[in-house]
Computed example of a mutant assay.
Amino acid sequence: MSILQAPIFLYSMGPFSSCSCRRSIRATANAPKTQMSPLFIPTIFSRGLAEELEKDHNSVINLNTCKRQSTNPPEALVVAKFYAIMEAVADRVEMHKNIGAQRDNWNHLLLTSINSITLSAAIMAGLAAIGGTGTPLVALKVSSTLLYLAATVILVVMNKIQPSQLGEEQRNAARLFKQLYREMQTTMSLYKLTNIDVINEAMEKVLALDKAYPLPLLGAMIEKFPKTVEPTVWWPPKRQRRLERLGEEIDGNGWDGKLEEEMREIVGVLKRKDVVEYLRLSQKALKVNKILAISGPLLTGLAALGSCFLGTTHGAWAVMLAVIAGALASVVNTLEHGGKVGMVFEMYRSNAGFFRLMQEIIESNISLREERTENYLR
């Protein structure tokens, strides 16, 4: 029974309790004291990622800092830094998840509000044309004009930030940070962390993800209507380096010639078909989104102009412009933000980035074998 309780006791003490001066476990039975080596640290993470990240952030790693002593082994300091990065990654997962839900709410609330304002303004313009005279006509005319102007301003801001696209960005970021967290868990479980390069590589991945999917809007928001469509890049540049596994250095990628030929064919297919196809779909979605983003404020602006001329000599044309343009604006807004065209554009662009990442990984592994062959010939 004491043996089964040992891992639970270690987990309750925190990840770094093994690097302190006490490294023994007291059992209820009369058993000898067991010395725990630093290699026991990776067994802490026996639970799955779903159990650790989906429980209201209470399951995020509890990082307990320990005093730096001269008796601590060098790998203990590397492990401490690695745990600090893991806690930052887990925190990023929760932040992107919450902000993604918030920006989805923006899309629904703003779309409902703008359509309500636009349709109310159109009804007021119609009522003013039916029987409005004197003071009622002025009140309906001014109210309709103000509502159309307010809808135009809000719609310009909404089309600029594209809340549906922002929500898709945050969902992608949360998914990729979860993937990075699992990779770091695997690294802790399989390898002995003694090299500072592991810390640098993890930090590069975190910074690349932060750059690809920023949290704030002002000053850091990704351009929603770029001139040229490029695949989303959320990974650091690949570096040619020697692989280190369990203390043994391995040159090359371990592939034979036949497998490399197949991998080259796959790279060619990715370049010619997959990446190109998703970029083409991204351009189409972007073009449709641009047309809808311009048409919506233009129609509400024309409707506001028509409301200004209600009750004048051009009253018939004014009321038609105010009512029809307002109705069309509601349809356009529903197609753009209800259909989430911005989210579709971001989805296609991120898919193109995924195939670009596959291409770079395969090319990097092939170049490792070529570099090994050149060194052998020399």
Rank of each mutant, 00 (worst) to 15 (best):
L111C: 08
T118D: 10
I85E: 14
G132N: 00
I85R: 08
T118F: 04
A125C: 12
S144F: 00
T112K: 10
K97E: 10
A88Y: 05
E75H: 03
Y148H: 08
K141Y: 03
I117S: 02
W106A: 04
I99T: 05
V78G: 03
K81D: 15
A128H: 09
L127E: 06
M95L: 12
P74V: 01
A80T: 15
E87K: 15
F82A: 04
A129M: 08
A122G: 11
R103F: 09
P73Q: 02
T145Q: 12
T135M: 12
R103G: 02
P136N: 08
I99V: 07
A88F: 05
K81G: 12
L140P: 00
V142I: 06
I85V: 15
V89F: 09
K81I: 13
Q102N: 03
F82Q: 10
P136V: 01
L109A: 14
T145M: 10
L109R: 12
S120E: 03
S143L: 04
M124W: 06
A90S: 09
M95H: 09
D91Y: 09
A101R: 15
L147K: 03
N115K: 06
A128W: 00
P74M: 00
Y83T: 08
L109F: 15
N98G: 07
V138I: 13
L146H: 09
